[in-house]
Design a protein around this nucleic acid. Sequence first.
RNA 1: GGCUCCGUAGCUCAGCUGGAUAGAGCAUCGCCCUUCUAAGGCGAGGGUCGUUCGUUCGAAUCGAACCGGAGUCACCA
Length: 596
Amino acid sequence: MMHEKVRVKLSELIGLAFQKMGVTVEVQSTYKTLVEPPNLELAHLAFGCFIVSKELKKSPALVASELYQSITDHFDLTEYGVQSVVAAGPYINFKLTPAFLFKNVVSDILDHSYFQRELIGPDLAQKTMIEYSQPNTHKELHVGHMRNLCLGDALIRLMRRAYGQEKIISSTFPGDVGTHVAKCLWYIKNHISEFEFQEQSGSDERGEWLGKMYSAGNLKLEDEASNPEQFERNKKQLTDILKQLENQSGEFFDLWKETRQWSIDLMNKVYLWADVTFDRWYWESEVDAASVETVKKYYTEGKLQKSEGAIGLDFSESNLGFCLLLKSDGTGLYATKDLELARRKFEEFKIQKSIYVVDQRQALHFKQVFKTLEHLGFEQAKDCFHLQYNFVELPDGAMSSRKGNIVPLMHLVSSMEEHVQHEYLNRYEKEWTKTEMEHVADAVAKGAIKYGMLKQDTNKKIVFDMNEWLKLDGESGPFIQYSYARINSLIKKFSYDHSQKINGELLMHAAEIQMMQHLMNFNSQILTSADGYKPASMCSYLYDTAKKFNVFYHECSIGHAENEDLKKARLSLAYATGLVLKEGLALLGIPVPERM
RNA sequence: GGCUCCGUAGCUCAGCUGGAUAGAGCAUCGCCCUUCUAAGGCGAGGGUCGUUCGUUCGAAUCGAACCGGAGUCACCA
């Protein structure tokens, strides 16, 4: 959809100019072909004549020069906001008047109408569910989980803005059953005293403690596995625990209920911190039993195959191997649950599209599940998409219980906040209240973590190096937040007046033009990021915005502007930039501090 | 071996629905705080875009093959 006024106006001009030449060109294709030149000395927007040249069977440069003639012969350029037009090889280079840019970009940002423009027609937007954050209860919650959380949340926000609030549904699928739970409970029962357990149950760190118990259990079981006698005994105990959980009775079921809640409390703490909410929580325990029944039903209907005593589907012809849905002992697997879950999502929410934000190791799993859905006749299968991302590693390699290098997430957050307070905010110690210090430290830590998790493309590894991330310079969330805070203090210092009339044509400095031209692209950027599932590209855009603002800030003094009108105009441009930064960061789930 | 992802500056990465001289950050070196917050700005050095072939008027971008790295390949999640 064509939402950018400047491009629409130029597209009209080009379309009419072609018409004078006896050539019909769709406005939409012109709109899409209007590109930004390598530098603003050349043009503000350029039209490349490649596509038309193909149709006309003329060289692009010839088409360009003819189009140039048509434009200059027949049209009053000022009516289209064009300051100058030049034919440069295959390109038509347009420079726009500052007044035109100001009116169609900055003014609309200032009155917020820019942020409300419809980007995609509601008829074109599909009802979509995005599932993200699948943490396990009874396990550690660490930085690794942040990548998924930040990615999913940013995607939700971007897509809601792009396609409409009501079209996008968020869901989560925590794993509250399975062997990891059994291992944790096993360890508590065998190696933790009743006294210590009671003590922990009153602690606000009990969620984290549970994670430690899982790790300890895992290590203990690994160690004891070398002894056949112990191995058999442990295996039997674990089976007993799982049986109790399945039958929903017994001491382990009671222990599970109690400790499960501890983990959920921790998840909620993290989600509250991250400002993440889910429309629907799907529990693994909720679909577990039902998924087995569903698969059995499909099997009796003859839709599934039996192989080596197990039930599933053979996709080896499409190089996807065998999708196992029922083990030979009659129990289900991960794919079994995901199949049932997908079915429920389709029915419960009537979604047309289903996105799974899950780590890239599950690529084959999801291909199999989607293929199975297709095989079972679910139309939505073709619009199921696995958004895969690469791991988060630490400088010394992967996170592991054995290495003991797992830092609980909320501990990490606290130490980042502390660092921000002591290293950066200490200069305001006398000026600010304690509450404001904490509030800003909270925002900056969020900016550092979330931006850091999002700025890199999903299929690249992220190395989380605490010391590097704390530097907060260069391309970082805090850099952008800092730019915002400076804008905000300019606004206060020079008492920006919302109702004043601005003379946009005064903004003719290269840095000012560049700023306006860049702000123009914000909405297009939202669409690009949402369509491509790429919060990272929004990150670069905002970083670019902040950098361009810094150039403007250094080159075009507001306080020392030559006259009052110019000062007002510059101030309004700064204000508009601040609004875009704030709005853009919000789409990534990152808050802005009013000062820092 | 099959499949998936990655390979761009010393390091970490943008750019990839083909188009104007390949861009950032970090690191290194040089300038700019009596001037709107130096968490900043300006400048310098640094690249056979893994290799080869192909498609095209035009390839970092598309296709094929190969090389190098990571992940994954039925009773774990």
